[in-house]
Design a protein around this nucleic acid. Structure first.
Length: 200
DNA sequence: TTGACGATAGTCT
DNA sequence: GACTATCGTCAAC
């Protein structure tokens, strides 16, 4: 079981990477506690041409600066003052592409994740939805700009193959403000997984 | 300095 | 299905 190499993230096409991330294992290890889950849902954000992307039109701010880094780092930010969302930065330097991880299937450290989420029994809502999975994995805003080829946060290839016909592409969620770009089918999920956020 | 607002989740009806 | 909690970010004043 090997960590995905930097070359996985630096490829130019963020849509390909978003699909390739399905079936991979997202792992965090904070304070010696390992928690992980299989990625079952992602969304691609393809700045600078994507109105739904924070870095649309090459908008550089202290927050979006991380997206302009070379692929292979994390981008975590706070939404609605409550939820932390975990993204993977892709592409080369000055290409602000990112993939939002929207759902995982819990694998390791489930008791820890349950405690973090304040839930008693294993159920899909433990890690379905971007805010939920970040909380379950212990990811917070301070974990932005972490190198995904080192320790603490990384993604492993478990050799699980996801076939094209198991992937559902659909419009992204919560980005109606992006006009025509809101309709782009850049949300990818594994068919029949209960750990994806509700279909729209 | 200030104010408007969001890549959501949980609770209540 | 609708309502709202809650605060960092960013652009304008």
């Amino acid at each position: 079981m090997s960590k995905l190499p930097k070359s996985f993230y630096t490829r130019p096409e963020v849509l390909t990477i978003a699909k390739d991330l399905l079936g991979k294992l997202l792992v965090t290890e904070f304070e010696g506690i390992r928690t992980s889950g299989i990625i079952v849902e992602t969304e691609a954000y393809r700045g600078p041409d994507d109105k739904a992307c924070h870095a649309y039109n090459n908008k550089r701010t202290p927050r979006t600066e991380t997206m302009f880094h070379e692929g292979g780092v994390s981008y975590v930010y706070l939404i609605y003052g409550i939820h932390h969302l975990f993204n993977v930065v892709t592409g080369s330097v000055d290409m602000p592409h990112a993939v939002l991880v929207r759902g995982i299937e819990p694998i390791e450290g489930i008791s820890t994740m349950l405690k973090r989420r304040n839930i008693n029994t294993l159920q899909p809502r433990l890690t379905a939805g971007p805010g939920s999975l970040a909380k379950a994995l212990g990811i917070q805003r301070a974990h932005t700009n972490f190198n995904l080829t080192q320790s603490l946060i990384w993604i492993e290839d478990q050799g699980k193959i996801i076939h094209e016909n198991e992937i559902i592409a659909s419009p992204r969620v919560g980005v109606d403000y992006a006009g025509e770009d809101a309709k782009l089918p850049w949300r990818f999920r594994i068919k029949n997984s209960p750990y994806t956020s509700p279909a729209k």
